[in-house]
Simulated scan of single mutants.
Amino acid sequence: MMSSDTTRENPEFLVLPTMAGAPQVPDDTSSARDHVEVALLPVTGDNGEAQLTALAFTSVPLLVEAMGERQPWVIIPTGELERCLVGSGARSVLIDPRPADGGE
C-alpha cells in the first residue's frame, strides 16, 4: 500500500503531472484511453533508500507554481489515485510539493 504525505484536507480531485500531453489513442484500442504516464521521481525514504514517488497537487495553480505552466497534467478523483498508480512503480505519493529554494 502506498503512503501519502499531505497536510491538506481530503480534496475531491488531484492534479497529477504527466510525461506528455494527452495520450494518443489508436482507433482500434479503446483501453488506451485509460493510460497516461504520470511523472515519477526517485525520493529518498525514511529508510535511506530511493523509491519512486508520484507527485499530486490539490489544484492546477499549485502544479503550475511548482512545475511551470507548460507541464502537462491530468485530473483524477482522489479515491482513484491508488488504482491509477497500480503498475507504475510508485511506492508513495507526495501531495503539493514545493520547489526547492535554489538560493542556499
Rank of each mutant, 00 (worst) to 15 (best):
R83F: 08
A20F: 06
L41N: 08
V60L: 05
D46T: 08
S30H: 04
H35Y: 11
F13I: 08
D27S: 14
E49F: 03
E9T: 13
F13H: 08
N10S: 07
S59G: 02
E49I: 01
L14S: 07
G68P: 00
P17S: 03
S3E: 10
S31L: 09
D5L: 15
P11G: 11
V25T: 15
P99L: 04
G102S: 13
T58Y: 10
L14T: 06
L81D: 15
V93F: 06
T6W: 07
P23V: 13
R91M: 10
V86C: 06
E37Q: 09
L85M: 05
P23S: 12
P72L: 03
P17L: 01
L94F: 06
T78L: 01
Q71S: 05
G79N: 13
T7K: 11
G48D: 14
Q24V: 10
E9R: 13
F13C: 03
V38T: 12
L41S: 13
E49G: 06
A22D: 03
V38K: 00
L62S: 07
Q51C: 04
E69W: 04
E37T: 02
T78Y: 09
A56G: 05
I76W: 08
S59D: 07
E82H: 01
A50T: 06
L62Q: 09
E49R: 05
E69F: 07
Q71P: 00
P23H: 10
L14F: 07
S31E: 14
L52M: 12
P23E: 02
L81H: 05
T58E: 11
D5P: 00
A32R: 10
P61M: 11
A50W: 02
A39Q: 09
R70P: 00
L52H: 06
D101L: 04
L81G: 10
Q24K: 10
I75Q: 14
A32D: 07
S88G: 03
D5K: 14
G89W: 08
E49L: 11
A22W: 02
L40K: 03
P61N: 12
G102A: 09
D46M: 11
P99T: 04
G21L: 05
D28W: 13
A90G: 11
P42E: 09
A39Y: 03
I76Q: 01
A20G: 12
M2Q: 12
Q51A: 13
P61R: 09
G103H: 05
A56W: 04
L62K: 10
D5N: 11
P17W: 03
L85S: 11
E65S: 14
P77T: 08
G79V: 04
M1P: 14
M2P: 15
E104T: 11
Q51E: 14
G45L: 04
Q71D: 01
P17V: 03
D46Q: 13
S88H: 04
G68F: 07
V86F: 14
E9H: 10
P61Y: 09
T29A: 09
E69M: 02
S59P: 00
T53K: 02
S30E: 08
P11R: 09
M2V: 14
D27V: 13
A100Y: 15
V86H: 13
D101Q: 05
V36I: 07
L40R: 02
A50M: 07
P42Q: 02
S4N: 09
T44E: 15
A54P: 00
D34K: 03
D5Y: 15
T6E: 06
P61V: 05
G21C: 08
S3H: 13
F57Y: 15
A54V: 00
F57T: 01
S4V: 12
A100T: 05
A32P: 00
